[in-house]
Simulated assay, not measured.
Amino acid sequence: MSYINKSVSINGTEKDFIKAFANELTSADNRITCETDIDAEFANEDSSHIITIIFNVNNCYKIKLIMGYAINAATNRYGICRIVNGVPYTSADLALSTYSTISAVITRTFNFMLISNDNAIAILFGGYNRTLPNTYDYNLISYHEQDFNIIACGTNTIASKSEFIRTDENHKGEIYKTTNRLLYSRDENVE
Rank of each mutant, 00 (worst) to 15 (best):
R31M: 12
S27E: 14
V105Q: 07
V190M: 12
I38S: 05
I151K: 08
D37K: 06
L65E: 00
E163W: 03
A28F: 03
L182C: 05
E163I: 12
I123F: 00
N5F: 01
H49N: 05
N23V: 03
N180H: 07
R82N: 05
S160K: 14
F21A: 01
N156R: 15
M113R: 12
T179F: 13
T75Q: 04
A40P: 02
V57N: 00
G126W: 05
T52L: 02
T155Y: 09
Y143F: 15
F17M: 10
N72I: 13
R166A: 11
F42S: 03
L182V: 02
L114E: 11
T167W: 12
T135V: 11
N129T: 07
N111C: 02
K6A: 08
S91R: 10
I50S: 04
D137L: 02
Y176I: 04
K6D: 04
I10E: 09
N76F: 04
L114Y: 04
C34Q: 05
N23L: 13
K172H: 02
C153W: 04
I83A: 03
D16S: 10
N58W: 13
K62T: 02
T33C: 06
F55Y: 03
N139E: 14
I32R: 08
M113V: 00
N44M: 05
G154I: 15
M1I: 13
R77C: 10
R31N: 13
N72S: 10
I80W: 00
E169Y: 09
P88W: 00
I141D: 11
I53M: 07
F164D: 04
S103V: 10
D137R: 04
L140R: 07
A20P: 05
A152D: 00
D118Y: 00
M67A: 07
L114P: 11
F110N: 06
G86P: 05
L94W: 07
V8F: 05
R31D: 07
T26L: 13
G68F: 00
T179E: 14
R31K: 15
T109R: 13
N134K: 11
S162E: 15
I66N: 03
T157C: 14
H49P: 00
D93N: 03
E191M: 09
D187N: 13
I71L: 10
I102W: 01
A73N: 04
I18T: 12
Y184N: 14
F55R: 04
S2P: 00
A40F: 00
A74E: 02
A92S: 10
D39L: 02
N58K: 10
T131D: 10
K19Y: 06
E24M: 15
F164L: 15
Y78W: 06
A120Y: 03
N30M: 11
T90R: 14
N11W: 05
I4L: 13
I150V: 15
L96G: 01
Q146K: 11
G154A: 14
G126A: 10
E174P: 01
T101W: 03
N56P: 10
A92G: 06
C153A: 11
N117Y: 01
E14F: 09
I158S: 06
N56F: 09
L65P: 00
A159F: 10
I151T: 15
I150S: 06
I4F: 01
A22P: 08
A43R: 09
E14V: 12
G154E: 14
S27L: 15
E174N: 08
M1C: 08
L132I: 14
I10P: 01
S7C: 03
A40Q: 12
G68R: 02
